[in-house]
Design a protein around this nucleic acid. Structure first.
Lengths: 339, 339
DNA sequence: TTTCAACACGAAAACGTTAGAGTTGGTGTT
DNA sequence: AACACCAACTCTAACGTTTTCGTGTTGAAA
C-alpha cells in the first residue's frame, strides 16, 4: 500500500539532505532559489504534507484540544461543542471529542488518553457517575501534571481550574419569578436528584424565588427524578390530583413530559397550568405548545471555555490565577405560559 | 510548570539506561526482578504513562479514527457518532471528530489534518457544499495515499471506498406504500433539492411507490426546499389550498413544519391528513401528534462503518475489495397517520 | 585455568521533523 | 599567496518510545 511521502524520501529522490528539503519547503534563505524551486515542485507533485505526529513530538505541542462530555446525543452538549470548535479552529486548534457515557471508568480512560500527549489541554463536563462518587483524583492528577483543564456546566468546586458555568440558580430564579408575576400561586418543581450539581442549583433558585416572594416551600410540590428513562411515568404519578397552576422543570425533557402528563390529566397548557423548562433544545421550538425555557446559550459557553483554555495554553509563562466565568441565561417566553 | 515524566527522566533518577526502564516496565525477562520492581515502583509513584505521540510516531499508527460530519447539532449524526464510538472503543481505538459545517473548504482542511498522521483512517459524511460542487479531489487524494476511508449516509458514487448507506429509496417507498395502503389518494412530497443525494433517492422512492400503484406523479404535489432555514414559510405556501390527504417529508423538520402548517390551515393531523417523516429524532417522539417516521438506525450505521474501517485497518495486507453496506430502515408508526 | 553460556544491562537506530552548528568550495581583498 | 567571507549546503541533536544487537560480568563445566 502506498504511504504518504516523507522528507527523507524527497531528499533521496533529489539527492539532497533531509534538512535541505525541510528548509527549502520553509523557503529558507539558506537554500538557493534553484534548489528551492526544484524541491517545492517535487513536493507539490507528490503532495507532501508534514506529518502531524512528528511535528507534535518535536514541538511538544499538538495544537489539539480535547473535549470530554457525558453524552453526545444531547442538544445542549452539541451546541457547546459547536462553540468550542468554532473558536478552536479560528485559533488554529483542532478538536478531539471523547464520550464518557456518564461512566466514571470511561471518563478516567478518556482523561488518560487525552493527557498522554494527545492534546495540549481539555474542556470537560463531568459524568454523572463521577459526581455521584465524588471521586475526582483523575482530574486532579492530570491538572497537577500540568495539563490545562477547563470545566463547564457540571463543574466540581473542589477541583481548581478554569470553569465556565451559567448562573443556574439565577436562571431558575428568574423563571420562577416570571411565573409568580403571572399570578401563579402553586408552582411545582420537577428536578433531578441533588448530586447532579445543576439540578441542585436550579432547585435552590426555585426555592429562593418562592421565599423572596413570601411563598411557602411545599415539599409535596417538588419532584426529584433519579431514573431519567422513566421520568414520564414518575411525572404522571406526581402531577395526578395536584392542585397547581405552574410547573418549572429543570430540563427540556421533564418539561415536555409534564405537558404531556397534564394534557392526559385533562389540564390545558397554558390555560390551566403554565410550564417553563430549562435548556433551549430542538423540541422546545417544535413542540405544541412551544415551550418557554431558560436558554443556556451553549454555544457561548463553548466559546468561552475554548477562549479560556487557549488563553492559558498560549501564555504558559505567566501564571494567571484560575477564573470561573459565569454566563447569563435568558428567559425565552413562548406559548407554554399564559400571557 | 510541571511536565509529565518520561522514560529518560526515570532512567536518570535511577541511574539506569532508558532501555532498561522501558523493558522493566514491559516486564521483560531481560531485566532482573530487583531492578524491575524498583523501576515499576518509581514509575507508579510518578504516575508514568507512555507518551501517545511518541508511540504513534514509532508504531506508525495512532489507534485513532477520525470522523468528519457536516454538522453536530443534529440528532442523526450524533447517533451515528455514538455507534462509531462504541465500536471503536471496544476495539481499542479513539475517535477524533471534525465538523465541516457543510463547507467545502473546511472539509478539505479537516481531511488534510486527519490524513497527515493524526488518524489511521476515517469515516465521513460529505458536506452539502461538496455535493453541490461535485469536487471530490480531496477525498480521492487521501484515499490514493493509502488512507482507508468509509463514507456513510451522504456518499459519493464516484469515490471508490467502503460505504454504509441506508436504503433511502426503499425506506421512502415503504412509507409511501403505507400511506397508499391507508387509502390516501393525494400524497404530497416535501424534499430537498436534488444535489443532496439522500433527498434525491427518497424522492425516487416516493415516485416509484406511486408508479407501482398506478398513481399519477403530480409535480404540483412535490416541493423541493433549498433554504432549510425558511422551510416553514415555504411549506405553508406550498400546502395552502392543496387538496391532499397525506404528506411524506424527507426529514423530521419538514414533517414537523408540515404538521404545523396544516394545523394553521385548519386541517387535522391525522384525521384529515396523514404525515410520515424520515429520520427518527427527539422531536418525533415528543411531538403531538407523535410523528410516524422512517427510522434510519443511525447507531447501527455508525457501528457498521466503524467495523468496516477497523477491519480494513487490521488487515492491511490482504487487499479486500470495497463494499457498500446497505442498512434497512424501519417504519415507525405513531399518531401522525390515521389508523 | 580456560571456555562458554547465562544473565543483566547499555547503545544505537528508527519513526518524521526542525533548527542550530558545522563544512565545503569559490570569490574577493590586500 | 594568504586570508576572510559568503553561499549553499550537510550534520547532528532533539522530541519519547521500542527493539535489536551488542557487551561486560558472573559462575560453572571441562
Amino acid at each position: 500500500m502506498k504511504r504518504k511521502i516523507t522528507l527523507k524520501q524527497i531528499a533521496k529522490e533529489l539527492d539532497v539532505s533531509v534538512s535541505t528539503v525541510s528548509k527549502a519547503l520553509k523557503d529558507s534563505s539558506e537554500i538557493s532559489v534553484d534548489t528551492k524551486e526544484k524541491i517545492k515542485a517535487f513536493a507539490k507533485l507528490y503532495n507532501y504534507k508534514p506529518n502531524n505526529i512528528a511535528l507534535s513530538l518535536k514541538n511538544r505541542k499538538t495544537k489539539t484540544i480535547g473535549i470530554i462530555i457525558p453524552e453526545i446525543v444531547h442538544h445542549f452538549f452539541t451546541t457547546v461543542i459547536r462553540g468550542i470548535e468554532h473558536v478552536a479552529n479560528e485559533k488554529g486548534y483542532n478538536v478531539i471529542i471523547c464520550l464518557s457515557n456518564n461512566s466514571f471508568d470511561k471518563e478516567v480512560l478518556n482523561l488518560e488518553f487525552l493527557a498522554n500527549g494527545s492534546t495540549d489541554g481539555f474542556i470537560m463536563s463531568v459524568a454523572k457517575e463521577t459526581q455521584q462518587k465524588q471521586d475526582y483524583h483523575h482530574i486532579k492528577e492530570v491538572i497537577s501534571q500540568g495539563m490545562p483543564v477547563v470545566m463547564f456546566d457540571r463543574v466540581i468546586d473542589e477541583v481548581i481550574c478554569d470553569k465556565v458555568v451559567i448562573s443556574d440558580k439565577h436562571g431558575a430564579f428568574e423563571a420562577v419569578q416570571y411565573l409568580i408575576d403571572l399570578q401563579c400561586k402553586k408552582i411545582a418543581l420537577i428536578s433531578t436528584v441533588d448530586y447532579v450539581s445543576v439540578g441542585k442549583l436550579r432547585t435552590e433558585g426555585y426555592c429562593e424565588a418562592l421565599m423572596s416572594n413570601d411563598y411557602p416551600i411545599d415539599e409535596s410540590l417538588i419532584l426529584k427524578i433519579e431514573d431519567v428513562d422513566h421520568s414520564q411515568e414518575e411525572i404522571e404519578v406526581f402531577l395526578k390530583d395536584k392542585d397547581i397552576d405552574a410547573v418549572f422543570a429543570v430540563n427540556e425533557q421533564f418539561a415536555v413530559n409534564a405537558i404531556k402528563a397534564l394534557t392526559k390529566l385533562g389540564k390545558k397548557v397554558p390555560d390551566d397550568v403554565s410550564v417553563i423548562g430549562f435548556t433551549d433544545g430542538v423540541v422546545s421550538k417544535s413542540f405544541i405548545p412551544s415551550l418557554s425555557t431558560v436558554n443556556q446559550h451553549g454555544e457561548d459557553m463553548g466559546a468561552k471555555a475554548a477562549h479560556l483554555l487557549i488563553e492559558r495554553l498560549e501564555n504558559e509563562t505567566e501564571e494567571q490565577s484560575f477564573q470561573t466565568a459565569i454566563l447569563d441565561t435568558s428567559l425565552i417566553i413562548r406559548d407554554s405560559v399564559k400571557n
